[in-house]
């Protein structure tokens, strides 16, 4: 299996520990990954702002970087959603790129999806004795259909108490440039999310997208709440360490 890691620009630059955790979890599953250095970003920020031509130029870097990979795994439901939902039409103008985009969409998986659907692993032997709640990323949920996978992985972790988040499927208010264009509105939305998170009494808030976590975590910390935010991969990697693996 030739598995390539699509780090995403956000994780590469701001949250490298998430990609590292993913690599370690995958290694524990017996999977070696490659990290093509030609990748930059999927272009989603530009695309969602209406700048499709700019997004196409940037997205092309992924088509090239992952042309040879058999599977592509990414720590972001949103970026995987971009590849699945947008790429096939974004590159329609050029037959070669369009073919590459179609192929990329077929082999790209969000992290939890890959563990369950491709590797068929839901129990990694991780140990994490904490109270944990989970926020699904909107794009992972609605563009990719990732619903059960992350929760299933969490529920298999030893010692972990999983608490369902009320109104879990409501957006946290991130929305990429949305949070910059209408910051007060975005804050009102994340405040509602924060209230729900606090209501669970969870020590740890998990998601599958650093965009959402950066938003919810940024607000939680600004308000002084000690809830820890973690990407699912980080939790599993830490759980593996605690489990002595």
């Amino acid at each position: 299996m030739r598995i390539a890691l699509m780090t995403t620009c956000l994780v590469d630059q701001f949250f490298p520990q998430v990609a590292e955790s993913m690599v370690r979890v995958l290694a524990a599953c017996g999977v070696q990954v490659e990290v093509p250095s030609a990748q930059t970003c999927c272009g989603q920020p530009a695309y969602n702002s209406g700048f499709a031509a700019e997004a196409r130029v940037v997205g092309q870097t992924l088509l090239t970087a992952f042309a040879d990979a058999e599977y592509v795994v990414t720590p972001s439901g949103s970026c995987a959603g971009m590849v699945h939902h947008v790429f096939p039409t974004l590159f329609q103008g050029s037959p070669h790129s369009s073919q590459q985009a179609q192929a990329l969409a077929e082999k790209t998986y969000e992290f939890s999806q890959f563990l369950l659907q491709v590797l068929g692993i839901d129990d990694l032997g991780a140990v994490f004795p904490h109270r944990v709640t989970f926020h699904p990323s909107c794009h992972g949920l609605r563009l990719l259909g990732v619903r059960a996978e992350p929760v299933r992985l969490l529920q298999r972790v030893r010692g972990l108490t999983y608490v369902e988040l009320p109104a879990a499927e409501d957006c946290c208010g991130f929305g990429g440039t949305f949070a910059l264009k209408l910051p007060a509105l975005s804050t009102a939305m994340v405040d509602e999310k924060v209230r729900h998170v606090l209501a669970t009494g969870a020590e740890v808030l998990v998601s599958t997208d650093m965009g959402c976590l950066m938003n919810m975590g940024g607000r939680l910390r600004r308000l002084g709440h000690p809830v820890r935010v973690m990407h699912l991969a980080e939790l599993l990697a830490e759980g593996l360490r605690q489990g002595g693996r």
């Binding site: 490298p16 910051p183 804050t187 994340v190 938003n215």
Partner: peptide
């Protein structure tokens, strides 16, 4: 990014990117 940090902490760029690590 000012609108963001008006209500939220913003992450800083990591000292070394994942590609560099």
């Amino acid at each position: 990014l000012r609108g963001w940090t008006a209500s939220r902490q913003a992450p800083a760029l990591a000292a070394r990117s994942f590609q560099e690590r």
